[in-house]
Design a protein around this nucleic acid. Structure first.
Lengths: 258, 258
DNA sequence: CGTAAGCTTGAATGTCATCAACTGAAGTGG
DNA sequence: CCACTTCAGTTGATGACATTCAAGCTTACG
């Protein structure tokens, strides 16, 4: 039975001494951190707060005054149309944070909310500025992470514009495998994906019904297995081929791609 | 007859003393520049080079070593799928530039090419760094511009994911009106749009045929008129209503929105 | 055990894609 | 100077993919 519990990731650091902190793991997949940098990040992300699914961390029109760092669970950026249609524009997974440049723009033009139960750390503006000023290694890694976020957003545009329903879903699953793995939240054969088909629909620009049909198809083809909020990737090679998945845009430098 | 020629914009500065430099105009719609900042930008963007349509400024896999600033015309970010399908992920209009953070990431994960004849200035890395270091006002404005680019990308995700064909096209046209106006390249009633229906199709995730049909529909409804590479917006209120256009994401602060 | 909410399944509809033939404008060469 | 080519845009017919609506089926929960 696949391990869906988060406790898996809270165990003591593994034998090789690597951290289990998703932010540290993610940044280290992009750049090299000094021991001191790691210590600072470790300290900042202590004592996360638990947030239920479906709660906005930041809403449209807000003037945000801090940054939220996701330590566990899944949140998303989204907007609502007047007719109630929702479009999700990004997934925030462990190690992701929202709006480092929060101080620069006046108002949020979209919302950020939880899709599943999350553990979240709120970091205030002063701490962010301190971090960026006095820890150039961290600042550099955060900057890289922002660039990867942008590249990911571009890839989503391609997904919505030029891929079929099964391709869209397959591509998303391949992307999440690598991103979650970089954050230490995915096993080799799959990962917890505690979101509803409805969320998936609002991500891929489809309807819930069609997402479920497509998901069933992918299972029938032996590519994946989804149950209990856990996604097992049964045939990664074929899934990636179907999605035409090219991981370069994540700029993981081969560190977690294998 | 609407004025499609670029020469319109190269005339001597208007009576109010404002520049006609698209980069300066764009940045001033986001922040306040000092006279000295303006002078530096004016100097940097002198002597643009003419590039024919359909030419890559930067190609996938390149390790870029400079920044391209668009002074006139339209370029785009795009990728190609294995089957030849193209998805355009951003329009670069006058005042836009590519990849300020060029030095940070190893390789381009997409290409940048011209859609129409462009006037382009290449700025080398040293100049960029000098600019960012010694002109904090410019650095700040450029940073804001980058955030707006990201917000625009998110809006494109919404466009592709949750809007119908006519809505997508209408939304794009509304967006370009404001962006071009901020760069001093649009009149009140329309602007030069020297791109093909095929380009529009690869932008909106549709086929060329369907774009042409939809375009014809929009004309029949009296919303727009397109001819000779010039787009006239005949009924802006209805066009914006159709697209459900909310300009906040462009963060123009009311300066050019009216 | 009963209710509600979400997932599944089926059938009908609609939007957009595909394919192919036609039109028209622009450029080329005899 | 005019036929010829070419290519972009148009139009129509057909079909695929995804939506919509609705009914049955689980599952979770009180």
């Amino acid at each position: 039975m696949p391990q869906a519990s988060d406790d898996l990731y809270k165990a003591a650091p593994p034998g090789d001494g690597r951290s289990t902190n998703p932010l540290i793991l993610k940044l280290e997949s992009l750049a090299t951190l000094a021991d001191e940098d790691r210590a600072v990040l470790e300290q900042i992300s202590a004592n996360p707060q638990v947030i239920e699914p479906g709660i906005d961390l930041i809403s449209v029109g807000d003037k945000p005054d801090g940054v939220y760092l996701i330590m566990d669970g899944i949140a998303c950026r989204y907007t609502l149309r007047a007719n109630g249609a929702r479009q999700i524009m990004a997934y925030l997974i462990p190690g992701d944070y929202c709006d480092l440049d929060v101080a620069l723009l006046a108002r949020m033009d979209h919302s950020i909310g939880t899709l599943a139960t999350c553990k979240v750390v709120r970091i205030d503006l002063a701490t962010i500025l301190e971090l960026l000023r006095h820890h150039p290694g961290i600042a550099h890694a955060l900057r890289l992470a922002t660039l990867v976020d942008e590249a990911t957003l571009r890839e989503w545009v391609v997904n919505l514009g030029r891929r079929s329903a099964p391709e869209r879903i397959a591509h998303l699953m391949c992307e999440l495998l690598l991103r979650l793995r970089a954050a230490g939240h995915a096993a080799d054969e799959g990962y917890p994906l505690p979101i509803t088909p409805n969320d998936l629909a609002d991500t891929t620009g489809l309807t819930t019904v069609h997402v479920n049909r497509t998901l069933a198809d992918l299972q029938r083809q032996g590519l994946i297995a989804m149950s209990g909020g856990y996604l097992r990737i049964l045939d990664r090679a074929r899934l990636e081929a179907l999605a035409e998945f090219r991981p370069e845009y994540l700029h993981l430098g081969g560190r977690v791609a294998a």
